[in-house]
Structure formats: C-alpha cells, structure tokens
Design a protein around this nucleic acid. Structure first.
Lengths: 108, 108
DNA sequence: ATGCTTAATCGTAAAAATACGATTTAAGTT
DNA sequence: AACTTAAATCGTATTTTTACGATTAAGCAT
C-alpha cells in the first residue's frame, strides 16, 4: 500500500527528477528567483511580473507547491507565497549530491 | 537573426530551466548517475541498466546530449558516453546560484 | 447583504514528452 | 561482399504539459 508510483527507479532518482522537473520551466524559475530575492514574499504580484495569464501562473504555483518548494499563506484577500526553507535545502542537497558525484573525467 | 527562441524570459532563466528539464526524468537521472559513478564511461550498457527499450534510451541520451551534459565518442561499433565536465560544472554553478540566492526566511 | 478584489479551479485546446517497434546507418568480422 | 552487432532515426500512439478564458470561491469593504 502506498507505494511510490514508480518502482522502476530508485526513490532518489524519482525525487531528484521531481524537483528538477519543477525547475524545468522558465516561468517557474522566474517565480523562484522572485521569491528568493524579495525581502517580503510576494503574492499575486507574481502574475504582473510574468508574461502569463493569472490562471497559468496559478498552475505553475501549484506545481511548485506540489513538490514542496514553496508554500502559500492566506493574507486577507490575497495569498502570500514564499519558499519553503526545508524543502529548498533538501532539493539543493539532492542536486549537489548528484553534481558532486562526478569527480574527474577518467575517459573521453 | 538567431534570437534565442523565447524572449519572454531571461537567458539565465531559460538555461536553468533547460538543464533542469533535462534532469526532470528519472531515467535521465539514472543515466547521469551511471556515467558519474563508472570509472570508465559506459556505452550501450546503459540500455541494460534501464527498464526501457533501446530506442527510448537513445532518445534520452540525445536529450542529455542536446543540453550538453554528456557527449558520445564512437568506439568501434559502439558509442562511449560520458559526462561533459565543462557543461556539468556550468549546470552545477547555475543551479547553485539559484539555490544560494535564498538566504533566510524573512516572512511566512 | 452587495460589491470588489484576489486567487483557485474548471473546461478545453494545442503542443510537447514519453515510449515502443521497425527500420536504417555505421563499424567491425569473417 | 555478406554478416553481425550497436546505436540512431522514423513513424506513431499515448500521455502529460502548457496555456487560456470563464467560472467559482474567499475575504474584505461599504
């Protein structure tokens, strides 16, 4: 029960791919850059910053939320999004592990 | 002439998303892990290691090659794939820059 | 309660990704 | 030259992603 969907790949492979996929669209990269740079976390201003419709941005936000990289706090009529530090650091660590696993070019 | 396709996003955003997208599938993560770990770079053995057909693996390899992360050297009848150190380090740096740009949670 | 603003969801269309078998191309062998 | 092996490409089906407008829901004003 509750198997992780794909048993073809290791958990690490699926997790890494999941995070990477979330970063795999320039709009989502832009959103994360925005959230990372702003002192206060922004809300629907994200929509104004992106060349996309409100519903599309909302969809991208949802995807980022699904992988845990961001979270949203309801703030009056609007919603305040921000980076989830823990997930952020975990994603960072996973990617770093992959990238650090290649040392020197022993061939080619 | 030769504009970079999407002017909606910055070059960095597109590049980052491009690399991330390449990492956004467990099969490609598995391939990179393999290439990173093996002393000698492997060839079609990749096919044997993955739960996918030869043609599908070839497609994944092509994608990784397209973003530059790997390159293939013809070695007799087979092809020897390996990680491209320079592109690898650039990708690593780009991702690190993004992940390091978020310091501390000033809100939420 | 009514209206206004903000954001999520729905429905849907179009494009891209994924996967496979079959075929082709290339490099060695015999 | 004919054969074998390895890998790329082709054609195609299926699924997923991306994007939008329209609608709904939620929160705050008046």
């Amino acid at each position: 029960m509750g198997a992780t969907k794909t048993q073809k790949y290791t958990e690490i492979q699926n997790e890494l791919a999941g995070v990477a996929k979330a970063l795999g669209h320039p709009a989502r990269v832009a959103i994360l850059q925005l959230l990372a740079s702003k002192q206060s976390c922004i809300c629907g201003d994200i929509v104004d910053e992106l060349p996309l419709s409100q519903s599309t941005v909302s969809q991208h936000l949802k995807e980022l939320k699904n992988v845990g990289l961001i979270k949203g706090n309801i703030d009056g009529p609007s919603v305040c999004y921000c980076i989830d530090l823990e997930a952020w650091n975990q994603a960072k660590a996973k990617l770093a592990t992959l990238f650090d696993s290649y040392k020197d070019p022993s061939c080619c």
